[in-house]
Design a protein around this nucleic acid. Structure first.
Lengths: 121, 121
DNA sequence: TGAATATATGAGCAACTATTCATAAATATA
DNA sequence: TATATTTATGAATAGTTGCTCATATATTCA
């Protein structure tokens, strides 16, 4: 029935310093987390993957994924706010494309990571 | 007061085909989403960043982040299950390191992405 | 102008998540 | 063996999220 002492005391002061040297500040960590959060949903990843080689309007994106227009539109707004997709309007049709190359890179690296891990969580 | 027709009809059949060609299947999308989900939290990103240059025990990680041992341990379990960190035991002390190079890459690409985007969501 | 169509969005709900609290498990040491 | 210490974990809870439903907005066309 004792408390943990390690919340007050440090075991390896030198390593703690090294850890603090590379530690992300809270603001950056939050911004970065927001970006990864955008990629942390199967639906959004599928939307992004559908846009890898072609531009698509909301209606067609809904058809590709087999989802409602509303659900797709909500997710696109989020992806847009995080600069992951871009849109252009032509009459009443809105076309979406991937915003920058980093998104493709992130997707590719992520796929490499999971291909190196067989077992499940 | 009309329904949307675009959930039944396709506007650009050729583009829809192109979108389906690169579309991730549900299983892969879910696995990939799990990986990005692990990086979608400021606390976990800070844990990872603390481990960039040094190995650290749970106790010291808690000190670096200024969090409770319990909270840190819970997050480490999640990172471990997704092969993002690895642990080795020495007596009653458990040391954590980053699991593979993909994690560093993902972090780096993510940082590049946010550095290219000034405005907020 | 009025009807049809493509897209966006607010509200609400069910499911998920990050932390805290209490405590268990494992190890070292006296 | 008894105690201290490090780590892990189950339960509970407050906050978040992804979808649906209804509807608003914007644009085209008859």
């Amino acid at each position: 029935m004792n408390q943990t002492r390690c919340e007050e005391n440090i075991i390896h002061p030198d390593r703690v310093k090294a850890g603090q040297d590379t530690l992300l500040d809270g603001f950056t960590a939050t911004r970065l987390a927001d970006t990864f959060q955008a990629l942390a949903d199967p639906t959004r990843l599928r939307l992004i993957s559908a846009l890898l080689e072609t531009e698509l309007c909301v209606c067609d994106l809904a058809a590709v994924l087999g989802m409602t227009q509303s659900a797709v539109s909500h997710q696109l707004r989020l992806l847009r706010s995080l600069h992951i997709v871009r849109h252009r309007k032509e009459g009443r049709i809105v076309y979406y494309t991937l915003d920058d190359a980093h998104v493709r890179d992130l997707l590719q690296r992520g796929l490499e990571h999971i291909s190196h891990t067989e077992e499940e969580a």
